[in-house]
Design a protein around this nucleic acid. Structure first.
Lengths: 140, 140
DNA sequence: GACAAATGTAATCACTACGGTTACTTACTA
DNA sequence: TAGTAAGTAACCGTAGTGATTACATTTGTC
């Protein structure tokens, strides 16, 4: 959803866009979009202003925003879930497996982010435009 | 949790272990373990038998089981969530961004799995044993 | 064959996360 | 000053998941 919002902002090339408009494209509620924009603001990816005729726009060119940044801006929970209860400390395996798995999972997440870094917002926009142009579905 | 269970089985080196014992190490309920074991059975990672004195054991040596296999055996939902509602098809961005993101996310997940492949269950066991031996906490 | 042990499985509950919705406040432009 | 748009709080519904209980089923041992 975050990528979708940023893609629309990129598509509008610097024009300010309201949360209501973005909500229309994502097909959700403006409040959802505003909550999402707060995270993107914290990451300095977008610039948002209150007031009549205003709204949000990208803070950088789409070519200088990659999807790993978007992921880090939005995703605050770890992709690998650990059980809520602590393992049995009396078990030789249980009492120290957590820290080892944390290491392995951090590495895996980093590998994933490194792959996401290869794709910029501009790449996404280009793919979208190409897909629209090659006639899979005729854009309005 | 799946890795924890498999690590205990590896630690027991071929002996059959009951779901009750595994639940004790993970600090959860035997039923949770049994449901997890069903997934691991489907992936041919463990071999489980009903009956007095039986239980589960690894189907392969720990060195021949990597964490990517465990991940695929257990995780059936995509790590990247897509919004429940379809995007607005009338929007030039919305009507085709999904398929492009599916491509990017599939690549990122693959990169993550590729990193997980580098770690085997034997690696986890060795780290656990080393951590226990170096005296951070004295095992029982 | 009877009994005990262990898994398979269904039903239910609680907790959490997240999107959705409404309503109200705050800030900015015209 | 009026209108527009974001900020934000409160609440609801849904989905996922671990936890728990209960029961059927299978298997090994005496």
């Amino acid at each position: 959803m975050a990528v979708h919002v940023l893609a629309v902002l990129a598509y509008k090339e610097g024009d300010r866009v309201t949360s209501a408009f973005l909500a229309g494209s994502v097909n959700t509620n403006p409040v959802i979009i505003r909550r999402l924009l707060l995270s993107l603001q914290r990451a300095r990816l977008v610039d948002t202003c209150k007031g009549a005729g205003l709204g949000s726009r990208l803070n950088r060119s789409p070519g200088r925003i990659n999807l790993a940044e978007v992921y880090r801006a939005v995703e605050e929970v770890e992709p690998f879930a650990s059980p809520s209860r602590k393992p049995n400390a009396a078990c030789p395996v249980g009492h120290c497996i957590r820290e080892e798995l944390d290491r392995v999972f951090a590495s895996a997440e980093k590998a994933m982010e490194h792959d996401l870094e290869k794709t910029s917002l501009a790449d996404v926009i280009n793919a979208v435009k190409a897909s629209g142009a090659c006639g899979k579905k005729r854009a309005v």
